[in-house]
Design a binder for these strands. Structure first.
Lengths: 208, 208
DNA sequence: CTTTACAAACCAACTAGTCGGTTTTATAAA
DNA sequence: TTTATAAAACCGACTAGTTGGTTTGTAAAG
């Protein structure tokens, strides 16, 4: 077998094993020995492909980010033709995809945070650009942000094994989030307040 | 010093130390030795109060849950008089509180998940009751769920160090979430679909 | 023959949990 | 109040096992 493909295969096996371990046993159980065991490689083999554990985490993150980047790009190509706010639509769809992916990218995220919170800067930077794009295209930026936040809430709740929602509810909520028509009823202008109902400072803040 | 209060003080010191460690070094660095070091107690002392590490995590979870339970109850007493959907209002306010708490309860959650995902059943059960209550009181249950999800999205994003939002934006979004008037424009009935716009099945699902 | 991919034994540091012993508090008889 | 006894809180050294990472050896690719 070719050397390059041999390496490729091993790297892949290691990363797949890592995700399987996180999903099955939790991020705390992700160790180099466990990866070696699960992947069939020896520990030395794993260490040859990734010089440190951090390198494994980083590769995991980058792989998953690339995967969803690809999904995003493909979706964006379609969405930009039919939606007034394709950035938001794409992000909502991507988050939905992540939420229903068995080897969720988010698992890699959690593992990274546990081991090395600094690694979070990569996905955070990307996220900031996306949010900026969503705000820029929106007639009502705050409403767009809230739809984005809701999608993330659904994703992260599920990820933590804390979603109290049934699959049907989950799907229905994502569908509604994605349906622009359902949100046009309460848009407010970006800078100017419409006369219809003045912005209220909302409930009093209580510090504890 | 009284025996009971002595115990209480030690338990407290250990739990405070645990939260400090998680916040400063990440959940992966939470060890019994670290707790002993940080709290000033000896390892034996810590082990006397908590027979296992899992017991520490459990106590942490329960303590934080009790804290926010208390906040919820207090808020609910006010909200139930002025709001049509006090359950939702209370949950939104509680999540906002958690999001701006420095030793966020959610840190305990993350630590628990890392070490022993099974522990998550406690908060999940409580969450399920709350969500049920929110749905029960809402004219448009799905919309209420989405407001709830958005709050959680803001909370969890911030928790992961992944919030791309400024503090001002964060506050503004929570205020809008809490303001019922801003959401009455797009309510749909619980069971019946209004003629205005049929539910769309949304974008096609893609499996990867 | 050199380099790359992998294997297996190995290591020092760290892990959760144990254990014998010391100090502090509680109970209560003298 | 004093004294005796027990019970709870606490300490710190220790153990068995795990951790990330290294070293040494070997077979295959180039």
């Amino acid at each position: 077998m070719d050397n390059a493909t041999r390496s490729e295969r091993s790297r892949n096996a290691a990363l797949e094993a890592a995700i399987a371990i996180i999903a099955r046993d939790g991020p705390g159980r992700l160790t180099l020995d466990a990866i070696a065991r699960e992947s069939g490689l020896s520990k030395g083999g794993v260490m040859h492909q990734f010089r440190t554990k951090e390198a494994v985490l980083k590769a995991l993150l980058e792989r998953q980010m690339a995967h969803f980047e690809e999904f995003s790009t493909a979706y964006m190509a379609k969405a930009s033709k039919i939606s007034a706010n394709p950035e938001l639509a794409t992000q909502l769809a991507t988050v939905r995809e992540a939420a229903s992916s068995p080897n969720s990218a988010a698992l890699a995220l959690v593992a990274a945070m546990v081991e090395n919170p600094g690694l979070m800067s990569l996905p955070r930077d990307r996220e900031m650009k996306r949010v900026a794009a969503i705000k820029a295209e929106a007639a009502d930026p705050d409403l767009a942000l809230l739809r984005w936040a809701a999608a993330r809430g659904l994703l992260l709740s599920g990820l933590f094994g804390m979603s109290p929602l049934s699959r049907a509810e989950h799907d229905r909520l994502f569908a509604r989030l994605l349906d622009d028509k359902q949100w046009s009823g309460l848009e407010r202008q970006a800078a100017t307040r419409p006369a219809k109902s003045a912005a209220k400072p909302a409930a009093p803040r209580k510090r504890v």
